[in-house]
């Protein structure tokens, strides 16, 4: 085959590849890039309560700086994020270790352990709303059966964040455990054999070998959970709608209300883009950490 013919064949192959991948590229642009660009554009618009629209420049972003609800929402988002992430990572690793070592655990029990995250968050929220109802719920009934005082759970401004974090952790800890379990199963047995020969205690083995080797997996789980946790919405929407007062009003809930209840789509877009930037920041930070702990 001559050089010209080979070049023509290569060009044709390139064209074919471009044609074949075009639908996927167009779909991706339409489904991801367009909504993002549109939201950025909306962030520069002002919408009145009646939906009338005008160019706002950076007004929506400068409004964020002086908006108490924004800063409060940011604080609530970060508090929920940190508390939930810590709970889910700690208990996720613990659950993974239990499942890893309990080799004889029947499949049905293993399935039960990891089943909560398969439940739609709305269903989980409804279920916990009933359980934690201060008057009719099972949680207070159990507390009182043991002579303990009842709690207001989701109705107390000081308890609502820990309570929501517990609900979310109940649902998503098994997910973290599943990721960590995969990591545990892939660890090289040789290092454990060496530790055993050296007489290392189980705790020391865990601290010095298992945990460091698991770190990349744990960081991966943290990244996946971070994206969800910073966008905390469904469980709060179902259980408290941001209350009592604004004690659980996360940025996502606040943005939803501003956009869909008060019709200020421009300011809501600015809020959501700020939240997106925070999510990206967290993911980038964890990615760097993952690079640092890789082995």
């Amino acid at each position: 085959m001559s050089d010209t013919a080979a070049t023509l064949t290569q060009d044709r192959q390139k064209l074919e590849m471009a044609a074949l991948s075009a639908p996927a590229v167009i779909f991706t642009v339409a489904m991801i890039a367009f909504p993002v660009v549109y939201t950025i554009w909306l962030g520069f618009q002002n919408f009145s309560s009646t939906g009338k629209q005008s160019f706002a420049g950076l007004a929506n972003y400068s409004k964020l700086v002086s908006d108490y609800e924004f800063w409060h929402g940011l604080w609530v988002t970060i508090a929920l994020y940190v508390l939930s992430l810590v709970l889910q990572l700690v208990f996720g690793v613990w659950l993974a270790l239990v499942l890893f070592h309990a080799k004889r655990l029947p499949g049905i029990v293993r399935s039960l352990f990891i089943s909560p995250f398969m439940m739609p968050p709305v269903v989980a929220g409804m279920m916990w709303l009933v359980i934690l109802d201060p008057s009719l719920g099972a949680a207070n009934y159990i507390l009182q059966s043991f002579g303990l005082p009842p709690s207001d759970w989701l109705a107390s401004p000081s308890l609502v964040i820990p309570t929501v974090a517990l609900i979310d952790s109940w649902q998503w800890t098994p997910y973290v455990a599943l990721i960590v379990l995969g990591g545990l199963q892939s660890l090289p047995p040789s290092v454990y054999e060496a530790a055993q020969i050296d007489g290392a205690s189980p705790f020391r083995t865990f601290r010095r070998i298992t945990l460091p080797l698991l770190l990349p997996t744990i960081v991966t789980a943290a990244i996946l959970r971070s994206v969800d946790l910073l966008r905390f919405f469904d469980i709060i929407y179902i259980t408290t709608q941001g209350g009592p007062g604004n004690a659980s009003n996360t940025l996502n809930i606040y943005g939803f209300r501003v956009g869909f209840e008060f019709f200020n789509i421009g300011y809501a877009s600015a809020l959501m883009l700020t939240l997106t930037a925070i999510v990206f920041g967290a993911v980038l930070a964890f990615n760097r950490l993952r690079g640092a702990v890789a082995w």
Partner: peptide, 21 residues
């Protein structure tokens, strides 16, 4: 009112009253 009344809307009120509480 009941404990946690700050989260009460029609669903919770109806449930509480219907149950005789």
């Amino acid at each position: 009112g009941p404990p946690g009344v700050v989260n009460y809307s029609f669903q919770q009120i109806s449930a509480l009253y219907r149950s005789g509480r």
